[in-house]
Amino acid sequence: MRSADIYQAIADNIGKVIKGQQPAVRRLLAAFVSGGHVLLEDVPGTGKTTLAKALARSIDAEYHRVQFTPDLLPTDILGVSIFDQRDQGFHFHRGPIFTSILLADEINRASPRTQSALLEAMAETQVSVDGMNYNLDPLFFVIATQNPIEYHGTYPLPEAQMDRFAMRFHLGYVEAENEIAILSEQNRRHPLDDLKACAGKDQVLALRRQAADIRISDEIKAYIVDLIRATRAASGVLNGASPRASLALMKASQTLALFDGMEFVSPDHIQELAVPVIAHRLMLDPQARFAGITARSVVDEVLRQVPVPI
């Protein structure tokens, strides 16, 4: 199958379960295929868990869910070495992180130590425990969630750590007709239970390789860099986006181009992903925050002002 069709199949499959969230699904798949991780910042009950499960089912991949609580320890995620009396040796019991798709629910409720354990593992794609390195799944993909409203008992991720996520976006509440459709469909059985796989892990890995082959002209690269640099110069921003952001934006745009069946990246792809990729990496001046500037508004402004290649 052509890559665009593979993507479309997966998206449609997920769409059977998650209604009315096509743009979010598109972004999620773009991050997934490009090898980045996703932070979903959303109010409870919008279907984040369902989304992760649907994705895992669609590509027949392993799926784990970790509920972050204040007393969660790093070993609870990574795994722990247990002394086996019979062998008189330590055996490493793998934690939930050794999976294809990990849903880290309410990551902001764990202590900073636990958060960094996960984030480091994400960055290095391997876990070091007791001097031994254990590699993670090649398709390792983290969907972390954060509840933006609650603050009681939370440790919001510091901006420096946010950089590790390729994208941050939210699902949000759906349109009325979609919500009605949800009620109709989930009356007796959850559609998730009936979901079948429509692609395989190796196909996804192939997509990843193909995405890296998508052509991108120097002018588009220069446009990406212009955007990133503009965020550094924007007013109210203490720390703009890093080159990691440019990389993430490029890779994700290539993936989108692949999904659209194009062989090259167009400026529209860049603009579609600019806010999800860049906004969460900006460190705003606290005064600016109190003056009403948000990261999203900064990126929107940059998109408007920086001349786009025509």
Binding site: Q287, A288, R289, F290, A291, G292, I293, T294
Partner: peptide
Amino acid sequence: RLPEYGTVGEPLHY
């Protein structure tokens, strides 16, 4: 479309 807050003495945009 007003921002969430303003601060005295700091310019704000809406």
